[in-house]
Computed example of a mutant assay.
Amino acid sequence: MLMQFASLGSGSKGNATLVRAADTAVLIDCGFSVKETLQRMARLAFEPSQLSAILVTHEHGDHAKGVMALSRKLNVPVFMSAGTAIALDCMADPRVQTIDLHTPFRLGDLHIEPVAVPHDAREACQFVLGYESHRLGILTDLGHITPHVVNLYQQVDALILEANHDPELLAEGPYPPSLKRRVGGALGHLSNRQSAELLQQIDLARVQKVIISHISEQNNDLALAKATLASVMPGHEDKLQFNCQDAGFDWCQIQPL
């Protein structure tokens, strides 16, 4: 079986990503209610009983709202940093397993590499998931690109990448000044240009898909995001795909090299 991945939805109203390979399936984040999560899984023809575990990037509601309730309903373990578990007040839950953000681990057939990222959360991370020779990078919810991030995402076969906002649209938009500073700050979210700068530092010849995610409905524009990112991907523009809040995206698979 090839490594496959799909999104239940991406944005400030909820995020969740499914990844599966061989006999293992994991959900990264669950920012929807249990009922909505199961409905969105059904749209992807995914049977919830196949879920092996939930991975959590950080405690913000659009990523963690439904995590513990879904874990209880499906009786699956949850993996998160100690800081995230403390923030969610679930450290004592027997289903919760804390992870070291600098120590890779295995979940069934998947190799999981946590990646510490700068975000305004207790101990936020993102993940690079591997199966055989394939690597999927998930990278949203960080305020700036660090050398550590560049190093771990340099050789991926597919990348789910945040392009949250355009600085000018954010500055002119409806958010209060404090929220504008948070979103655009070093612990906030990546702008289109910051995401483009990361793409300039990775092996685009290897990457099969770049799926742009966590796009702000108030502070960004799809056409603008696409133009900014495509400008640094000459010859690879057809690899760009966009994730949305309502529909997410259907199953994609990493093809053998």
Rank of each mutant, 00 (worst) to 15 (best):
V26W: 12
V156K: 01
A69K: 13
K180I: 00
S213M: 03
Q241L: 15
V67H: 03
A22T: 10
H119F: 15
Q194I: 02
T140F: 02
A186Q: 13
E172D: 12
P174T: 00
L204P: 00
E168R: 07
V19L: 09
R122M: 11
V78Q: 06
A227W: 05
F105K: 13
G235E: 11
P48R: 06
L74C: 00
G185P: 04
E217Q: 13
F79I: 03
L199I: 11
R181D: 14
T146C: 02
M41P: 06
G184T: 00
V26H: 09
H60V: 01
S10H: 08
F127A: 05
L240E: 07
F242N: 12
E237M: 08
D93P: 01
T84W: 12
Q218M: 09
C125N: 15
V183R: 01
H189D: 03
L240G: 05
A16W: 05
S33P: 07
S231E: 11
G66K: 07
H214A: 13
H60Y: 01
V149M: 04
L257Q: 15
D203M: 05
L139C: 08
H189W: 11
L51Q: 03
L142A: 07
V128W: 02
G143A: 03
N151H: 15
E132P: 00
D246N: 14
L27K: 01
E217C: 02
L110F: 04
G61S: 09
T228W: 08
L152I: 12
V19W: 08
D62G: 00
K13A: 09
F79H: 13
A25P: 09
A121S: 04
P176G: 02
V26S: 06
I145W: 15
C125F: 13
A116K: 13
C252F: 15
Q154P: 02
P256W: 05
F127M: 00
P118M: 02
C90E: 05
H236C: 10
L44Y: 05
A223N: 13
L2I: 10
T84N: 11
L2V: 12
R206P: 08
Q50P: 03
A16C: 12
G188F: 05
D62V: 08
M41T: 08
R20I: 08
E172W: 06
L222A: 14
V67Q: 04
T17Q: 05
N243V: 07
Q253R: 14
P177Q: 12
I211M: 10
I160N: 05
C252L: 15
L229H: 04
P147E: 10
K73E: 15
